[in-house]
């Protein structure tokens, strides 16, 4: 026997059985159980009340009454946010499109202006050449008349 009065060899032989005997589930006091059940009931009642309240709010917004009232209300609250995001995205797309269109128009206008300038330059050049031709031709005629008069 040990100093505690327990025979070690007996314990060693059947320790697991002793543990099973010793470690049987323990019930709490009835007072505790009653208090716990009261708290759980109160909590459930509050949760049911909250669900009912959410359901009423959802119905007030024209949403169908469902068992999961909170989710419906949450979705209803998210709708404006979703539309805001979509509106911003659409506005951004329109703005980008408009900028691209303006840029293309500007490029096209610059191209037309350049073409017009080239045509004008060619026209001026043509006039200059024509004038030079006339001058050369008149001088040649004068020289030919002078030669025949000698």
């Amino acid at each position: 026997m040990s100093s505690s009065g327990v025979n070690p060899s007996d314990i060693d032989m059947d320790l697991e059985a002793q543990l099973r005997d010793a470690l049987r589930p323990v019930a709490p006091s009835d007072a505790f159980t009653q208090a716990l059940l009261a708290k759980l009931s109160a909590r459930s009642a509050r949760a049911s009340s909250a669900r009912e309240s959410h359901r009423s709010q959802a119905a007030g917004r024209g949403l169908p009454p469902t068992r999961d009232g909170e989710r419906v209300v949450r979705l209803a609250r998210r709708v404006p946010g979703w539309w805001l995001t979509a509106s911003l995205a659409a506005s951004l797309l329109v703005a980008v499109g408009a900028v691209q269109h303006l840029r293309a128009e500007h490029e096209r206008a610059r191209g037309l202006e350049a073409r017009r300038e080239v045509i004008e330059a060619l026209r001026v050049t043509n006039q200059k050449l024509d004038l030079a031709y006339r001058v050369v031709r008149s001088q040649s005629s004068a020289m030919a008349e002078g030669d025949s008069g000698v």
Binding site: P25, V26, P28, T33, L36, L40, S48
Partner: peptide, 24 residues
Amino acid sequence: RGEPAALETLVRAHQRTVYGLALR
């Protein structure tokens, strides 16, 4: 579904396990 009697049954069925583990 929030039926108190059913909740009580669940608590009473499992309280020995939970309380026993917690206590030990």
